[in-house]
Amino acid sequence: MSPDRGYQASFNENNQEFVIAGKLRPRSEDEIRPLAQSLGEALGQVKGTFYLNVKRLARLNNVAFRVIAGLVSQVCGGRPDLRVEVVTSSVMGWSTRKFLPLARLLPNVSVNEYDKDFYPGQSYLEEGGFIPILRAQTKLTWQHEKHLLPRHGLRPGMAMADVCCGIGDFAVLVQKELKPASILALDHSRSSLDYARKVAADFGVSGIEYVYGDASEMVLEDNQFDFVTCRHSLQVFDRPELILRELYRICKPGGRVYITNEKNSHCLGEPRAESIQWTYNEVARLWADYKMDIELGPKSRRYLIDAGFEDIRVDSFMVTNLDGDPQSFADIIQSWENVYAGEMARDRGDSPEFIARFRQGFQDHIYAALHPKGYAGWPIWAASGRKPS
């Protein structure tokens, strides 16, 4: 409805959900009369809970808000049996603030900021304490990825998006060494983006635009980017297919989407292999309990095919203690222990005996990484697919 005016609206009868997206900035109520009529009809025909979804509504002026709020108030005032749930997003923080007063006035209206707890394990992985592990990981994985990215389709002069960019160091390395025309880097963590901007400034790198956003509902136009990356992130989401749907949408026809993911149960080390294997098997179970899949790596091809991509390319590589300074790899393992055997295992309710054995496997992995004859590895899958022309 009315895409020429900057907004789209639709009603799904099965879900009882009315979705408004885009920009809703009429100069008068008459301009959105068709929208008001559709919303009124939808409200009038449902029973139970009605979902008003505005999580991808980028702009809403007071004229439009008065129309929507007036309709909701009128219907809810006469129908105490009807519940209206307004679905907002933290990406559009104004929408939560805008609709909350309506919920305070009407007992059968509520506001749900759907991405408030978007990843079940988000609080463990996105805040400042995880920055050292991310910097160390990128330092080691870049030695492999800088050769893989051209094979997967990245060329100088392309428009690129780095979705779930984290602390931004990958985008900086790509911009410096592989020379895309521009990079839009998006993440759902404000603290990570603050750090990312600092990294870019410290390196004197321009051409990167950092954007706060929800990877499953990006407020970006369709078919914008020649090359889209999403690294070590699908494994964090409980519904990775939603992220892939969005990566597909923003990629240009003929462009490619590149993803990397892990399989932690295949982490290895010698000596002390048995203890190391046990711990990383438990890491996979721990992540599963938080609805995350640290085993997603080999599943990447299936996910890309199911999302509609073609010409799938898959590589795997092993980050090891031989890729540079072994202490850097040991530092990564120590960070894993601090988070996984610390906060996450404790919050899951694991016993002190379990946590002690869990920690020992990480320490044995560090021992393997630093041993003069030792070998320690961490496997990663890199995969990409082309969006059909």
Rank of each mutant, 00 (worst) to 15 (best):
L43G: 01
D81H: 14
E41K: 08
F354N: 06
A196G: 07
D347V: 05
G308E: 10
D325G: 09
V228W: 14
A341Y: 12
L193W: 11
V339R: 12
T138I: 04
A376H: 04
T49F: 11
G77H: 12
R239C: 09
R190S: 06
N108P: 04
L140Y: 05
V205R: 10
K291P: 00
A21Y: 12
S182L: 08
S10I: 05
G157E: 08
D350N: 11
E262K: 06
N108H: 05
W278T: 00
I68C: 04
K291D: 01
V211H: 14
Q334P: 01
R302Y: 12
M218G: 00
W336I: 02
A284M: 15
F358T: 03
V109F: 12
W94G: 14
S95I: 15
L35M: 06
V19S: 12
V84N: 08
V54S: 01
G6N: 03
G269F: 11
A383V: 13
A64V: 08
S233Q: 07
L100T: 13
V91I: 13
A368F: 14
L184H: 05
R66D: 01
V67N: 07
V283A: 10
F237L: 12
R348F: 13
L193G: 02
A341W: 09
L39G: 04
S275V: 11
N223R: 10
E337T: 04
L154K: 06
E31G: 00
C251G: 04
D306M: 14
M218D: 00
R25C: 08
P80S: 13
S335F: 12
L193R: 08
R25Y: 09
E221G: 08
I250V: 10
F329H: 05
G297E: 08
A58K: 13
F118V: 04
N15C: 06
N264G: 11
Q74H: 06
M1L: 07
G207Y: 15
K299Y: 09
P80L: 08
A376I: 03
L102H: 05
Y258L: 01
K179H: 14
S300A: 15
L52T: 01
V46I: 09
P101L: 15
V257Q: 03
Y124L: 02
Q224D: 02
I305K: 13
L43M: 02
Q224I: 03
D325K: 15
V72P: 01
F130A: 02
F203I: 00
E343K: 09
R346Q: 13
K387F: 13
F130S: 00
D323L: 14
T141V: 10
V75S: 01
W336S: 04
S191M: 13
W336T: 01
L100D: 12
E113N: 14
V174N: 06
D4M: 03
Y258I: 00
L43A: 01
L193C: 04
A215Q: 05
I355S: 04
G70T: 10
W381A: 05
C267T: 09
F309C: 03
